[in-house]
Design a protein around this nucleic acid. Sequence first.
DNA 1: TCGCTGACCCAGG
DNA 2: CCCTGGGCCAGCG
Length: 117
Amino acid sequence: MNVPAPRGSDAYRRIYSVVSRIPRGRVATYGQVAVLAGLAGRARLVGYALHALPEGSGLPWHRVINARGEVSERSDGGPAGRVQRILLAQERVRFDAAGRVALERFRWRPSRLSVDA
DNA sequence: TCGCTGACCCAGG
DNA sequence: CCCTGGGCCAGCG
């Protein structure tokens, strides 16, 4: 797939690779993506990588949420967060009254845990 | 090269 | 549940 690779950052490439594998109707947390990308403990980097993602990348960036099951708020107050909820809802990912996704039910559980594809 | 600046996470209190 | 503190680190002036 056309996975964008800004500035030849190996870490970013690995992160995008993992995100591209999250199936429809499922979600993964930032920390989970980090671990699957071989970057355990660097959840923040996942957030930075997604933030740097250009529009129309084709990556299912909206399937990445935080460990509390919420869509992380953008500091710039942009529409990205709202869009993310809509996209997830269209995939039948449900939010409870508190705006949280039940991770025990919607979390992606990849059969293969290695970094490569 | 230095110094911000973040779509995070977890353990504590 | 809320708040604090510490760990994480690439990109761009």
